[in-house]
């Protein structure tokens, strides 16, 4: 399809992002990540590798953590997406966001939104309880600054709180 007039037309897409409904037109080749960042100016979800190898783009799709860089936007029709911008309740930070600050679980901050979204899902998956399980469960999110120890500490602290208040789940 290298003919100039063959670039496929935009197609309609409806999805909910952080509780807000969006009716959009997207080219099929647009990833969810580029839709969020370039079209909707939700730049909290980061592009670290664009190939599912770093986790910086992690968002919640219908409550499950996924790599937005390997998700075609058009395939999310009807879905509920939660990004880092949708975690705080107005000005009140999510317990994980607070724990990340308290434990200095980031430095440059670029992997942080993905780490936090990933940890929110980790809590709702309900499988990671021990330190080793948290470490394995957070290994899909690279941190080049090397904040891993503090990330684990933050997650360890916030997990019980999230499970108790069911804040691990998706926000439609």
């Amino acid at each position: 399809m290298s003919d100039s007039d063959c670039i496929p037309a935009h197609q309609p897409l409806e999805l909910s992002i952080n509780g807000q409904r969006h009716q959009l037109q997207v080219a099929p080749w647009m990833t969810l990540l580029d839709l969020l960042r370039d079209q909707l100016d939700l730049t909290g979800s980061k592009k670290g590798c664009d190939h599912g190898q770093c986790g910086a783009c992690t968002v919640l799709r219908n409550g499950q953590r996924v790599n937005a860089c390997l998700t075609l936007a058009i395939m999310c029709d009807g879905d509920c997406i939660t990004t880092i911008e949708g975690l705080a309740d107005d000005e009140r930070l999510h317990p994980l966001q607070q724990a990340f600050i308290r434990h200095d679980a980031f430095q440059c901050g670029y992997c942080t939104p993905g780490q936090i979204c990933s940890a929110v899902a980790l809590a709702s998956e309900g499988r990671a309880l021990s330190r080793a399980e948290i470490q394995e469960g957070m290994s899909g999110n690279l941190c080049r600054c090397g904040a891993y120890g503090n990330i684990v500490a933050a997650v360890e602290e916030a997990l019980p709180q999230m499970i108790a208040s069911d804040q691990g789940g998706p926000r439609a």
Binding site: Q64, R65, A121, G140, N141
Partner: peptide, 9 residues
């Protein structure tokens, strides 16, 4: 295999 995110997808 892979990561929790990729296994979900």
């Amino acid at each position: 295999g892979a990561s929790p995110q990729l296994r979900n997808m």
